[in-house]
Structure formats: structure tokens, C-alpha cells
Write a protein that binds this DNA or RNA. Structure first.
Lengths: 240, 240
DNA sequence: GTGTTCTGAAGTGTACACACTTTGTCGAGA
DNA sequence: TCTCGACAAAGTGTGTACACTTCAGAACAC
């Protein structure tokens, strides 16, 4: 979006710089990697990708280098950049780490969050709950993540937020499928409310227990969600 | 080092590519950022840095983009790359996250590590302990990190290892100063052994408690270490 | 038929060119 | 003295050039 609001010179000057390419390109490729729009372990052709995004290889490579550190892209020297593998063990590993950080999240929130922020959290989630019929899996996943990130933010530790966001991006593909399960959806609504209630009561241990149950269930369901995910990547529409 | 073991063409060809520049450059800049060889919030001149490292700006920028994601460098559009700030709250935040992940670390290790790996861990640390007189703070910090990373690795979760390594890089500057404290050194040796013993006994709760005490003390000491750190950055030799 | 070497195309890795942005300096005007 | 604007220098952002690597397939030997 935002087009190219740039003063045009008469001569078709070579390379009139398109502002902020790297960030746009970075966001675009990140989205593609998160959603496995590249097939797992597929080599990414820089020239092609640059052409698609309407920029040169330079900003594309800078963005790809960032994504390597984020774990969304891998790099093989002299071969090129590749989409991350679809690695079930790795995904379980990420769920494990996430569970640990979410635990810290509620602990800190229970101790430090203001009453107002906690009230806002409940309002937020009640709002989502009220609108649930109108939401598709994608939107609901987004709200779900937002709920968790809000709690993390209430603890006043920005690094915790950053890491959770990074992990969320890497497991979003699986979680979105999980959340399509109607049963899972219902339990999620209840579990989130239970967490929020525990925070409101400043009951740290209960908050941890609720969060633990909530995430624990996620891990258990992750395996079937991953199967479904693989089918979608490799079988496309046929999977449904 | 490593010179240029490359077949020389007769003509002084422009740009005979130096293999794997990005990784070398990345490692070099990372080390500089970790050790605050750039002053906090100092702008990093790409041209100058490239010249120092003997490469062009391209690999330097790719490396810097990676380091931005790692949190060791910041980027202000149209201004350039900057050294990360020296932010006490952020460092405390990182210690907090680290404590949470180290807890997970020992939990997983207590459940999953083989007896052999645990025995190796104890041997390793006893070896370090035996040589302690010969080690400076830098080397000891390195061994200390290795101890913790070994435990994380025993849990079989590579992502956990990755994140701990990333955090370690960002707090290493402070931890190295902490470890200079003779009293701290002694307690570290004992605490590590206590953790290892608990793992050997497969006593998960005790392992968590030991780890928790160990890291908890670290956080408390971090504040004074940060003061000292600031003095070294801005006062250099005078600080001692 | 199988293995080996050659060759060319495709594509990465890095240097470099150049436009644009930012910032500091100097001088004019109030 | 202070403010403002022009100007210049420094330095970033991105496009492009080109050497090098990899890989597939042809040509060839056995």
C-alpha cells in the first residue's frame, strides 16, 4: 500500500530509491514463511522473489538474513536461502519453550499488572467471545495471540514479549489449524477467562495452573494439527 | 588470519570474491557488540567498519541486519545502525527470561538426560573446578555458560539451546564482571555441583530449586555488576 | 550399460555506483 | 543575537555488474 508518492523526474533515472524497501520486503517474506507459502526446504530464488516484490536483490537478501536469525529461513552457503523445514520435533520444542515463557508471563502479570490492565484484558476477551461467530480461524488465532501477548506485556518485560512473538510466528501455522477445531475453540474461550480471573484475584499459583493446562492441551493437540498442516502444504485444496 | 589462499589471476581482477565474508563479518561484529566495543547507542559507520574488516559494505549490512534481530544492534531508518543501548531494565528482563528457561532446562534434563551425559557434566565441572586458579574471568564465564548449555542440550530441545545462547550473548558483558567477584566464583562452583547432583539423583524439584537459587543470586548481583560495566565502557582503564 | 570429464546455464556472493537523506556550517536578514 | 535558508559533506539505501559455485546433462571412455 501507500503507492509511490515520489516526485517524478523527467529522465527515466536509473534507480530512484523506493523508500523503506527492506522493511516492506521483510514483512512480506516473513508472512510467506510463517504461512508456509514456500514449501518446506524449498530453495528460494532471490532473483524471482525480488522481481515479485518489485525490488532488487539487495533488500531481499537483507530481509532474508534477518529471517535466518528468526528461524523462519535457513541459509546454506553457496546454495542459497531455503524455507525452514517442517520439523515436528522442533515445533514441539517451540511449544515447550513457549509454555515455560507463558508461565513466567502470568507470574509477572499476577505480581505487577495494574487492576485496570487486568480489567481491560477481561473486557477484551469478553468482546472476542461475543463476536466469536463472526470470526474465521485466522482472525481468532490473531486474537488468541493478542490475549497472551497482553498478559506478557503486563509483566513489564519487553524481552519476554519479543520472544513470545517470535515463537508465535513459528508455530502460528499449526495453531491456526488447532483453533479450527470447534471443541478446541470452546475450551480456549473458557480457559482464557479462567486465566484472567485468576489474575484478577492475584492468585499467582492458580494463574500458573490455568495457563499450564491451557498450553498443555495445545501441545497434545499439536500433533494432529501438524498432520493436517502437512496435508495442506503438500495437497492444497485436496486436503479438505 | 587465513590469508587469501586463492588462485591468483594475472590481471589485478576487480573483486575476487572472498569466500564466506558474511559469516566472518557477522561473527566479528557480534563479538564487538557483545563486548560493547562500540559505545552504547553509538552510530556504526558502515564504510569505516567495512574497511576495518576488509570487505565491502554489502556483507557488513547483511551481518548487521542479522544482529538487529538478535537484539545486539538497533536500526534507525535513514540514520543507520547503532550499538544497542546499555539498558539496565532490559538486562534485568533478560535475566528474568533466562531464569525461566533455565528452569525448563533442568526440568527436561532431569527427565530425559542419560546417566552418561549427567556423569560427563559432573566430570566437566569438576575439571573446571580443579583448574580454577588458572582461569581468568573471560574463560570462566565461557565455562559457566557451557555448563548451563550442556544441561539445556541434555533436555533434547535445540530451540531452548538457541534461545539461551542468544540471551547469554546479550548478558555476557555483565556476567563476566559478576564472575570476577571472588566470593561469587566460589558460590558458583558449589551451586553448579549442587545442580548436577540433583540431576544425578533425578530429583527434579531439587534441581529446579538449586537452579533457581543460583540464577536468583545472579540477578541480585547484576545491578552492581552493571555499574561497574558502565564505568568500564566509559572510563576504560581508569575504572580499575 | 556405467562411470568420468567437460561444458554451459542458472544463481549466489560481493563489490561498486549513484541517488537520496540527514546534518552541520555559513551568511544574510530582522 | 537569533532565526532561517542555502549549501556542502557525510553517509545510508538500493540498484547493478560481475566473478565464482553449483548442478544438470552431453560427450566420451571403458
Amino acid at each position: 500500500m501507500a503507492g509511490t508518492p515520489r516526485k517524478k523526474t523527467i529522465k527515466a533515472a536509473p534507480a530512484p530509491r523506493a523508500a523503506d524497501s527492506v522493511n516492506r520486503v521483510y514483512a512480506a517474506i516473513q508472512r510467506m514463511a510463517v504461512n508456509f507459502e514456500f514449501r518446506p526446504e524449498q530453495r528460494i530464488n532471490e532473483v524471482e522473489l525480488a522481481a515479485t516484490l518489485g525490488v532488487s536483490r539487495t533488500p531481499v537478501r537483507e530481509a532474508l538474513n534477518r529471517l535466518v536469525i528468526e528461524g523462519l529461513i535457513t541459509l546454506v552457503p553457496n546454495k542459497g536461502f531455503y524455507c525452514r523445514p517442517f520439523d515436528a520435533e522442533q515445533i514441539i520444542g517451540l511449544f515447550e519453550v513457549r509454555a515455560s515463557l507463558e508461565r513466567l508471563s502470568v507470574e509477572l502479570a499476577a505480581e505487577r499488572a495494574s487492576d485496570v490492565r487486568i480489567a481491560e484484558l477481561m473486557d477484551f476477551w469478553n468482546g472476542v467471545r461475543a463476536n466469536r461467530a463472526a470470526m474465521d480461524a485466522e482472525e481468532l488465532t490473531s486474537r488468541d495471540e493478542e490475549f497472551h501477548i497482553r498478559i506478557a506485556a503486563m509483566g513489564g518485560n519487553p524481552e519476554l514479549v519479543r520472544m513470545l512473538e517470535s515463537i508465535n510466528a513459528r508455530i502460528r501455522f499449526v495453531r491456526r489449524i488447532e483453533i479450527e477445531n470447534p471443541l478446541r475453540r470452546t475450551t480456549t474461550f473458557d480457559e482464557h477467562l479462567a486465566i484472567a480471573e485468576a489474575l484478577k484475584a492475584r492468585d499467582r499459583d492458580r494463574a500458573v495452573a490455568c495457563m499450564s493446562d491451557h498450553i498443555g492441551i495445545s501441545v497434545a493437540d499439536a500433533v494432529s494439527a501438524m498432520k493436517e498442516g502437512l496435508a495442506r502444504i503438500y495437497m492444497g485444496r485436496m486436503a479438505s
